[in-house]
């Protein structure tokens, strides 16, 4: 069996997802033995357009991003989204709340015409995504799990249950018992309840579960005397691109 050829690409984002792949450290050699990496924006100078699988980080926030994404999607047989920006739009979507022109003006002032920014969107608004590796940043073991599943031809098991499950498995005290706000009850797990374990409420960086009870969540936050701005802020931090979720508030 020949090794699958893989390209690792970065659109608009912080580059942290690609860094997490490099951070695999003791598993890197096994990774290189299992797949043939022909493009790696953050790590390799050489470039090839001959790949089967594309791992794409970052959201589409510029015209240039869109051109690159379209180019990649013409070549790759399998597209894997890595991280919050790519999968759900992530923090880049906050720009959309201001409107593109206003945001450009706020940040770049009289140089705003130099910038080719467009409304930020997750990549699946433009291309069909086969698998998602969630999170900001993604879980390293999940990156390995997805790649391994692709090699052996298995559907990767990405959790579609809320963070509460992982908190309860870990025996964490509920953030609401600590007087904190937490999105964990409607947010997709797989992170190992990283933030609540550090006594910080979940901010839904992996997006929402498929069928979140968003209206009940609204009631819950209201019950704890939070202002609507706090609730909106928590919903929007990573998920402002999800128009459907925004509407329910």
């Amino acid at each position: 069996m020949s090794k699958p050829k893989v390209g690792i690409f970065g659109l608009t984002g912080c580059g942290g997802c690609q860094l997490e792949i490099l951070n695999l450290e003791d598993q890197l050699l096994d990774l290189f033995a299992a797949i043939d990496i022909v493009h790696f924006t953050e790590a390799i100078t050489e470039h090839s357009d001959n790949y089967d699988i594309a791992l794409i980080e970052g959201s589409v926030a510029t015209k240039h991003d869109l051109e690159r994404l379209e180019h990649i999607s013409k070549i790759a047989k399998v597209i894997v989204s890595i991280g919050a920006c790519s999968g759900i739009g992530g923090v880049n979507c906050l720009k959309n709340l201001y409107g593109v022109e206003k945001a450009k003006e706020l940040v770049y002032g009289d140089k705003k015409e130099w910038i080719d920014a467009i409304e930020t969107k997750p990549i699946d608004e433009y291309v069909k995504v086969d698998y998602y590796i969630r999170g900001c940043p993604p879980n390293r073991s999940e990156i390995v799990d997805v790649i391994r599943s692709l090699i052996v031809g298995k559907i990767p098991e990405i959790p579609n249950y809320p963070v509460c499950v992982e908190c309860k498995r870990l025996g964490n005290t509920c953030m609401y018992d600590l007087g904190k706000t937490c999105m964990g009850v409607v947010s997709r797990a797989g992170c190992g309840a990283r933030c609540p374990s550090a006594k910080s409420g979940c901010e839904a960086c992996r997006g929402f579960i498929d069928d979140p009870n968003v209206n009940a969540q609204k009631d819950l936050l209201a019950k704890y005397n939070l202002k609507i701005e706090d609730i909106m802020g928590m919903f929007n931090l990573y998920n402002a691109c999800k128009k459907t979720d925004r509407k329910t508030i």
């Binding site: 249950y161 509460c164 309860k168 498995r169 009850v185 579960i209 009870n213 009940a216």
Partner: peptide
């Protein structure tokens, strides 16, 4: 069930 989050906490505790 209208209020239920399907979060699984009831089972896990």
């Amino acid at each position: 069930a209208k209020d239920c989050y399907s979060c699984g906490s009831c089972c896990l505790v």
